[in-house]
């Protein structure tokens, strides 16, 4: 589904955000990119929907080099949600959720129906929320609307960049559970970016650990947490290593 072939990204000013990254994420997999701040997670994600162009190498989606696709059409076929959600403040919840279908030319009635279905999917009673505005929602509700928006056009591939970043811990775990449930049932390819190892273990089937623009670990949560090969991964697990190990065992249990 997604393939990175020796992809490097160098920013003007000398920062190399990615060093020749090779990676493959098969269809239907829930992959989590995890790593410290500045390790290149967002950059890697944005390569997929062409918000970022590679300096060298190729990125393929469904076997086609993204450079050969029309960026607008490519992006509309991929769900995308970012930290702080990026909801449009002057649009109602309904308008936000149905944005991509609208861009694709859905009629107002279709948009309304899509918004209803989308809200229902993220467990928000449509009648209560359709006509609210983002500032009239709680942080968790906003995240859910953001997710509903990313899924509205029923994309096969969904990119989520720290979608829980703005939430406090209690709410975060609740929403994580919910998202896991919602997303788990959909059989979509999902790439989620986070810097929180706990979240990665909790959500992902596959964990990709990044450090300074390189992939330093790749495997199931058990493989990555219980048998860390890399010095950096050990450091990333840090003082919480014991706790995370127990958590993985518990999840598997």
């Amino acid at each position: 589904m997604i393939r990175f072939e020796k992809v490097a990204v160098r920013f003007p000013g000398g920062v190399t955000a990615l060093h020749e990254l090779d990676l493959e994420i098969p269809k239907g997999q829930f992959a989590v990119l995890v790593g410290a701040s500045g390790s290149g997670k967002t950059t890697a994600l944005r390569l997929v929907n062409r918000l970022q162009d590679a300096s060298s190498g190729r990125v393929l989606v469904d076997g086609v080099d993204v450079q050969e696709r029309d960026p607008i059409e490519l992006r509309r076929s991929i769900g995308y949600a970012i930290q702080g959600v990026g909801l449009i403040a002057h649009m109602s919840v309904a308008e936000n959720v149905a944005l991509v279908p609208r861009l694709k030319g859905a009629s107002p009635e279709e948009q309304r129906a899509i918004a209803r279905a989308g809200l229902a999917r993220v467990r928000m009673p449509p009648d209560q929320f359709l006509d609210r505005y983002p500032h009239e929602l709680s942080g968790g509700q906003r995240q859910r609307v953001g997710l509903a928006r990313a899924m509205a056009a029923d994309p096969d591939l969904v990119l989520l960049d720290e979608p829980f970043g703005a939430l406090d811990n209690v709410v975060r775990e609740e929403i994580q559970d919910e998202f896991k449930e919602i997303l788990g049932g959909l059989h979509k390819t999902i790439v989620l970016v986070t810097h929180d190892m706990h979240e990665a273990i909790h959500m992902g089937e596959r964990i990709l650990v990044m450090n300074a623009g390189r992939l330093v670990a790749d495997g199931t949560p058990e493989e990555v947490v219980l048998r860390p090969k890399d010095e950096f991964v050990r450091k990333l697990l840090g003082r919480r290593r014991r706790e995370l190990e127990n958590y993985v065992k518990e999840l598997r249990g």
């Binding site: 944005r46 918000l51 970012i82 449009i88 861009l103």
Partner: peptide, 20 residues
């Protein structure tokens, strides 16, 4: 970030201008 999210969802430049 709002503009970025809009672009990521496939808005054209003109749509980013008029929608956001």
């Amino acid at each position: 970030p709002t503009v970025d999210a809009g672009r990521g969802m496939g808005m054209t430049d003109a749509q980013i201008l008029t929608f956001i």
